[in-house]
Design a protein around this nucleic acid. Structure first.
Lengths: 133, 133
DNA sequence: CTAAATGCAAAATCTTTGCAGCCTC
DNA sequence: GAGGCTGCAAAGATTTTGCATTTAG
C-alpha cells in the first residue's frame, strides 16, 4: 500500500460512513458525500470504497438482491435487521459472547476454520408492524 | 399468480437447483440448465429465477460482493459457509432449535417482528486449511 | 385457439478504466 | 516537484425489455 493520501473526497466518504445509522448503499454514500464535497465523482466513490475495504476500514454486507451496502469497520461486530416493507436496515448490537453460533464445534471437528460471520434478520420493523397499510 | 406454465426451460432450471450441492450463481445455473435444455436463453434464466423467487420456490442469498446465488426453497432452513480462499460455498445443516438467535427476545420487545434470518460463516474449508500455501 | 413463455437483440444500468490535470506530501 | 487522486467520458459488464414466434393448456 504505497501511498494513501488524505483528500477531501476520502474524508467526505469516511465521514458519511462513520455517521451512518446503518449500512449504506453506494448510491446513498454518493449522495451524502456529494453534500460534503461538491463535484465528487461516481468513480471516486467506487475507487475509494474498494480501497477502504482492502484496508479493512470499511466492511461490505449483502442484505438484498444485488445491493451491496457499506459500513465503517469501527462499529465493531453486530448484526442487521432489514424491514421487508420499508427496506430500512437497522444495526443490532450483539453481546460478544452471544455470538457463539450453533455448530461451531462441529465445524471445527470437520476441519473448517471459522474466521467471521454475518447474520441478517428479516421481518417487519416497529413502524411497519404497527401502522400496517 | 395468473398462469404458471410447465415448460422444459423451467423444469431444467428447477432441476438444476434441486440437485445443487450449495447455492449457485446465475452463470452456473445458466450453464448447467443449458445442458438439460439446449438453446436456453439468458433472459429466460433471469425471468424464471425472479418468478420462482416470487413464488417462494427459490431463495436468493448474498455471500460475496455483488454476487447473488440461488437455492431451492425445498432444502429447508440452513446456513452457509464460504471459503475465503477457494470461494466454495457449503450448506450447513442446522438443527432447527439451534436457531434461537440471541436477542430475539429483546427485538420482540422493541416491536420488531422477525420472520426469517440468514447466517453466513466465512473462513477456510478443510482443504484450504490443511494444504495452506 | 389463446395467452403465457421464449429467444434474440437492442436498450437501459451499473461498474471499471484510460487519461490529462490537480493536489498532497 | 513527483506521483498518487480525481473527474470525465468512453469502454465493459450486467440486467431488463420489446417483439415476433413458439407452445402449453
Amino acid at each position: 500500500m504505497a501511498g494513501s493520501r488524505h483528500t477531501a473526497q476520502r474524508q467526505a466518504i469516511q465521514s458519511v460512513l462513520e455517521n451512518a445509522e446503518g449500512p449504506l448503499s453506494r448510491a446513498e454514500i454518493f449522495r451524502k458525500a456529494q453534500r460534503l464535497k461538491a463535484g465528487l465523482g461516481q468513480a471516486t466513490v467506487y475507487r475509494t470504497l474498494k480501497l477502504l475495504e482492502e484496508q479493512g476500514k470499511v466492511r461490505s454486507v449483502w442484505l438484498e438482491r444485488s445491493e451491496v451496502r457499506y459500513e465503517s469497520a469501527d462499529l465493531g461486530h453486530h448484526h442487521h435487521f432489514r424491514c421487508r416493507l420499508c427496506h430500512r436496515v437497522f444495526d443490532l448490537q450483539a453481546a460478544p459472547q452471544a455470538c457463539q453460533l450453533p455448530g461451531n464445534q462441529l465445524l471445527a471437528e470437520a476441519g473448517f476454520l471459522v474466521e467471521s460471520h454475518q447474520v441478517t434478520l428479516t421481518g417487519l420493523c416497529p413502524l411497519c408492524c404497527s401502522g400496517r397499510s
